[in-house]
């Protein structure tokens, strides 16, 4: 059985107690995207300002939820501010890969027994503080809490992509 300290690392608790980039941004120009976890009622609302160069000029988080969903959202905002869309998408992919150990089940790519060791980290992407969330994979029901804001951010980029005039 994994211990609580594997889950509630000090960095995570710090982001939970003092969340970064909390609040909202005027829409437009910012995109507002909501993510919701029907299982636990966790909710994140992201405001993402994407500049002409496709960079995350500013990002804010609203909503409520457990320590994992809220700290993950907070750490995400700190990590992606100033990054380009391509960089951000790489980070989203790397983060979801880190969280994907148990998320196979019905997708048919697992052995049906869940635990089959960690996914190798993508050496090209520096996870920085986000590494602290790695312990979440030992608590499978919490994985969706950790990935909620990341999926929501991907949606914001999808929306932005749709809005951008075709070249």
């Amino acid at each position: 059985m994994a211990g609580l300290e594997d889950l509630y690392r000090e960095i995570i608790l710090d982001h939970y107690r003092s969340p970064r980039n909390r609040g909202d941004l005027p829409t437009p120009p910012a995109y507002r995207v909501e993510g919701f976890n029907p299982l636990c009622g966790d909710e994140v609302v992201l405001y993402v300002d994407i500049d002409d160069a496709g960079r995350v000029a500013d990002i804010k988080v609203d909503g409520q939820g457990c320590s994992i969903s809220q700290s993950s959202a907070s750490m995400m905002t700190a990590a992606v501010k100033g990054r380009t869309e391509a960089e951000t998408r790489d980070l989203i992919r790397a983060f979801k890969a880190m969280m994907s150990i148990h998320e196979r089940g019905l997708d048919g790519n697992g052995d049906g027994h869940g635990d089959s060791g960690p996914v190798a980290p993508d050496p090209a992407v520096d996870m920085g503080e986000l590494e602290a969330l790695r312990g979440v994979v030992k608590f499978p029901v919490r994985i969706k809490c950790a990935t909620l804001s990341w999926n929501t951010l991907a949606e914001a980029f999808d929306q932005a992509g749709l809005d951008r005039p075709a070249e």
Partner: peptide, 12 residues
């Protein structure tokens, strides 16, 4: 304390 966190602490 969010119910998920509470339940996690109790589980331990």
């Amino acid at each position: 304390v969010h119910p998920h966190d509470l339940s996690q602490v109790l589980d331990s």
